[in-house]
Design a protein around this nucleic acid. Structure first.
Lengths: 226, 226, 226, 226
DNA sequence: TATGAATGAGGTTTCATTCAT
DNA sequence: AATGAATGAAACCTCATTCAT
């Protein structure tokens, strides 16, 4: 329906323009405000088109958001999965995931925020199409971690999901608009810091061995499947 | 007109009046919906008082939110600071912070979410009163980390703020309503896991020293398991 | 862009073009909804043509309705008048009118409803083209009745228009979608019942002559079956 | 909730004024246009109150219509039933029903139209509260007719429902805004005409016996329950 | 002849807020 | 201290209609 084979102009230009402009406008606005405080009037005005087009092309305001999220998110996820396939070792894969996620986060901050991290919030809106995408991402990360545990690359005395939570939560907080990016630290070095922390911990090696065992912390059992 | 009998009877004196009931109602509602989708009508109905009281007591709807946040947040922060003062060693202090934060998160999820973590979002409404509280918390955590670095307890080859980000982000993701708490894992054991990850890293000790290289994003071959 | 191959092929020639399809669509839709709740979008979609064709062919939405009404109505009226001409006696003529009207009603309920009965309603839209047709029908019925009165076939102690009203009103209520047609009584027998009632009255002949008094609204006693 | 016991003024005045004015406005407007072409803006403006009051008091636009219909209709129906109870004989009862219905029709034309006669139209709106009222009226009329048949007062060779249809349809057409009432014929004399037609038929007595039997018309069987 | 794109005007509805009492 | 009534402004959304192609 879209992407007609160059009927009028050599380039793919016959995709209805209004829809494109609306998506751009929505994206722009999401950068500054949260979804529910963005009005259709504002979107249309920003896009320079008529408000009714939102409904013609996307059903309603939320439809526009979803279209945006799916578009951006599925491209990211596909790229991520492909890149990770071409690499071996759970740790290196995780490193790659973090790096690509941070990059994505910075490039498409708005979507990233909702897709990667806001996962379980937004209770009302997200029983829908987009939610599946997010879960896929989340499961994908968990799977890599689990594989690392099975291979002995990652300690298995903490919950796999907790590790995933620390990673995703770390990404979010590292990337959120704040002092960090005002200081213009690059995406990749932020990612490396994050990886460094989560892989090796914050306690210097020389101290290791001391101050372990806390009641409630599961120890032992490094290898599984002996 | 609504059960006005006994307006000043001693027994009825202890029934919370308008302001208190409104705060309770708001808190209840925040548990289920986000701020902008809670209507004043609903607040008043939940509180069982007249809508106009919101304006008498709190100026407006946001005023009510802020009152709530400040109340809950400043108590938490005061308690946190006091508890931490009475303890030595950056690592133990951080452990305590995480533990108390997770507990607070679970007890007063709504406020916690906004105060501890939503920090830099919500940019519209939160350039105000509450913001300072949040920054105080954030700075407090950073200060502890910095002290740990200075004392050699914490590695100083990664950014202090990145460590804080991983901690706060981890707390958020570990605590958000999700599979974890449906599986009824306790607050404290979640906190311990988190600490375990961030302190020691996820890479087993026996592997340490290996694999320090940081491959450029697209290194090796595409084949796996040949 | 929509299967444009073979634009003038002989086989595709017989496919009804825009105007016809639009009329068919409108008719279909009128069967289920009333005029003002039928949207141009829906009409066009039902017809499988472009919305703009409504304007090319009929000026606007109401134009389409009128075209439809005039087409259906004038055929009916012409047939009715011709059939009635070939018959003598006012009573037999009325009988025929009722029968044909009921048949028409059932076949083209939508138009019938508007043309035969909705006569004086719809005051907003119907001060126009179609209105004349309706009045012609109405006058035609009245004329037959008047002729019957003049010829002594019909009692002349009640208003001619009232008789017409009872006939038309009876047709409407007998024909409206209701228990009757769910019970599958045929058009003709419904028409006969109606004629039977209006011609002979509902009071059995043996009682005629009695009870001619017209009691003031609140005569007799309040007690029943003492 | 309404009809408070004179809290401020001796008369029943403390019913919120907005609601009353809205109902009045709606009634006024219904006299001229049909429901779906009346806008909330127009209602509010006519009432001289704010549009939002429609929603506060009646839920929505249709709620306002229903409130109106129920109010008017249930009063009418109650009065009708009571009056009819105090009278004996099916024919006299029917006469009374017609007379009161015509009066009601003329006094509250709008509601009458919808309540008494539009019965089966309006397919969308009337699966609701009001519908039951209408059916009650309809059943009430049918019951009287059936009783008349059982008592031998009314011929039983035509369907009871068809008789009811002729009566109700006749009322509608006699009463609809048209030439009749511009000529200022009174309600009661219109009702008498209608009764005259339906009771005695339009064929003069002297002709009776001739031109009966038509194929399809059920004859015979005047008495039941011999 | 027919269409896809776009739009203005207006529809219903919601909501935070004010105010007399 | 508290309320019922009312409201302005704006939200989301629908629709008949126009126009370039």
């Amino acid at each position: 329906m879209k992407a007609t084979r160059g009927q009028k102009k050599p380039r793919e230009m016959s995709v209805p323009e209004g829809g494109v402009r609306l998506k751009k406008a929505m994206k722009t606005l999401l950068r500054k405000s949260d979804f529910s405080s963005i009005t259709t009037a504002r979107i249309a005005k920003t896009a320079g088109v008529n408000e009714a087009l939102i409904y013609r092309y996307f059903g309603d305001k939320r439809g526009l958001l979803h279209a945006l999220l799916m578009e951006s998110g599925s491209i990211f996820l596909a790229g991520l999965e492909e890149a990770v396939e071409g690499m071996e070792g759970a740790l290196d894969r995780l490193r790659l995931i973090v790096k690509l996620s941070v990059r994505y986060y910075i490039k498409d901050r708005v979507f990233a925020r909702i897709l990667l991290l806001e996962v379980r919030n937004y209770n009302d809106y997200f029983e829908s199409e987009t939610y599946e995408l997010v879960r896929e991402y989340s499961r994908f990360v968990s799977k890599i971690i689990q594989e690392g545990m099975d291979a002995g690359e990652i300690r298995d005395d903490v919950s796999c999901n907790h590790i995933r939570d620390v990673l995703l939560g770390g990404i979010e907080h590292v990337c959120l608009p704040g002092p960090i990016f005002k200081r213009k630290i690059s995406a990749d070095s932020a990612a490396e810091d994050l990886i460094g922390i989560v892989f090796d911990g914050i306690v210097p090696r020389k101290l290791k061995g001391r101050r372990r065992q806390r009641p409630g912390l599961r120890t032992s059992g490094k290898e599984r499947n002996p």
